[in-house]
Nucleic acid binder design. Sequence first.
RNA 1: GGCGGCGUAGCUCAGUUGGCUAGAGCAUUCGGUUCAUACCCGAAGUGUCCGGGGUUCAAAUCCCUGCGCCGCCA
Length: 639
Amino acid sequence: MAKKNFYITTPIYYPSDKLHIGHAYCTTVADAIARYRRLVGDNVLFVTGSDEHGQKIQRKAEENGLSPLEYVTGIVENFKLLWEKLGISYDDFIRTSEDRQHKTVQYFFQKLYDQGDIYKSVYEGKYCTPCEAFWLERQLVDGKCPDCGRPVEDMQEESYFFRMSAYADRWFKFIEENPDFIQPASRRNEMINFVKQGLEDLCVSRTTFDWGIPVPFDSKHIIYVWFDAVINYITAAGFMDDREKYKTFWPCDIHLVGKEIVRFHSIIWPVMLMAMGEPLPKKVYGHGWLIVEGDKMSKSKGNVVDPLLLIEEFGADAIRYFLLREVTLGQDGNFSRDALINRINADLANDLGNLLHRSVSMIERFNQGVIYKAEELTQFEEQLRELVKETVATYEQHMDNLEINEALKAVWALISRSNKYIDETGPWALAKKPGGKGRLDTVLYHLAEVIRVVAVLTSPFMPVTSKKIFDQLGLPNPEAFVLSDAQRWAVIPSGTPIAKGEPIFPRIEIKEDTVEEPVKPAAKKPAEQSAVEEVTIDEFARIELRVARVLAAEKVEKADKLLKLTVDIGGAERTIISGIALHYQPEELVGRDVVMIVNLKEAKIRGIASRGMILAASDGEGRLQVVEAPGMAAGSKVK
RNA sequence: GGCGGCGUAGCUCAGUUGGCUAGAGCAUUCGGUUCAUACCCGAAGUGUCCGGGGUUCAAAUCCCUGCGCCGCCA
């Protein structure tokens, strides 16, 4: 049978900042799907990348004294590092700054211009000079810039426009003929609703910055973000430079995207392709967001979770498992440290890890470390084998429907059944029983086989773990895991020596309250801020926060981290000790208006009475910044 | 404001076209087991299915309404 070709993409991420757990989630899902398709035997192209152009990047690069490309390259290296640590098996990493992308975008632009789908006109809007940003009337807040709140002025800019309006009917027709194009269905309905209000032409060029792809025939115009970004998907498929590859992989099977960009992928991008006469992707899947401790993740809330730290602490496979098992694709999912540890302990350590460990232990102890094939069957073996068959079938069905967490559920039901099987058959009793050898071998063989099947099935989700399992079972690691191995039974040759190892997932012991560090109140890593108890507004009100002006600051002798501050809290002076000396020189604090807890119980630090504590934000990676309220009168209440 | 969705056990959620005694996992309690990572197996639960009306022999499920939360509206 000819191999099926399968092309899946993640969004290309914007390298203005570090990637957070949400990006890791999306890419992990894509990776799991890509690995599953390879497991099934498909010929897979899995592409991720970076969306490097735009004004924001240009400005950040300038701030750092770098060229945009230099600036962005450093960040992209970090992207790749994260993907490596997370075990992402991408086939291609496309950067929009690459030549192949420039060529493709300009080709698109030129062709659409030549056929009249792109035209030059005037973009009218409100312009915020400090932000260098255009806004539409309806985006303004009280008539002012929604970003900075400053006044805006009328502005006109010559721009190129893409004639989207001409394609609404064709888009509807396409959606009707391809009801599964946008998933989940709720997103589809939103998009239909959106287009029903009519499609406007889209502004696709800007003249306010130059870090980007120029309009081929009008170089003072830069092709604007979405237009130049989405084209990456077709560039990476070889549209310009490898027609053979293009024919193989385009149209794309799945664009996996966050729900916030479904519109660009399910309306603008298909319409662009229609205009170009190219085939449309088969599916746009909008996944949900990760909610952190009940809150949307955002920089301003300071609850951004760094996936690299998590990987270091728990291992990539555990993180991958959590994301894939806990979250239903298409819905928002909850991320919390407690839930993560709970999953690791319950599912990975207790169920799977312990199943493997107790099985190889018994093979070692009762059978001198050798797996023997035997067939003294009872109803228990029959039931177990029956469930194996069912599990592989349900697994396939769920994976084909992108119900990854359901597929995992099915595998874990099998793991559970296997633990029960041990109880039912009692190998330790068989080992003592005269004449029990045949039964014992049978049971241990069935255990080894089930675990082998489990390792194959979980390989798209936990590739490193699958290999570890094979190692411990004494099986050679295959070049690539294949699903047909899970569909076959009795693969392990009789006489296979196992190689028992350490438990593959150690239990995570939850530490009781970490020791208080009065000097470094804000030094907890964001990832450790889980399990925070809720407080009422009244409880919060007991903490009196005030603006304090720093009058004097000096280092505390024989202490690297401590500063002694004298502050004015509105008519009264206080002396406090603060553990911020590594981050601030004493003199740069003087005159600042900081936020302070004034009713903190007095503490003696290095012999000095400290009455109060100033607030500081820290990210667990060594950065720290005191919380300020510049210009507020000393003593102002903060709440 | 317009359109759409959601509200089920302490927690996270499943409940297909109305037909159960309303379920699963985790957490909790109790019992068993000793191969195993205080693990595994078994048992026990607990529910105004958001509130109030209505349709029906029958409503978590359909209709109306109130409350709360969420999404989309370039």
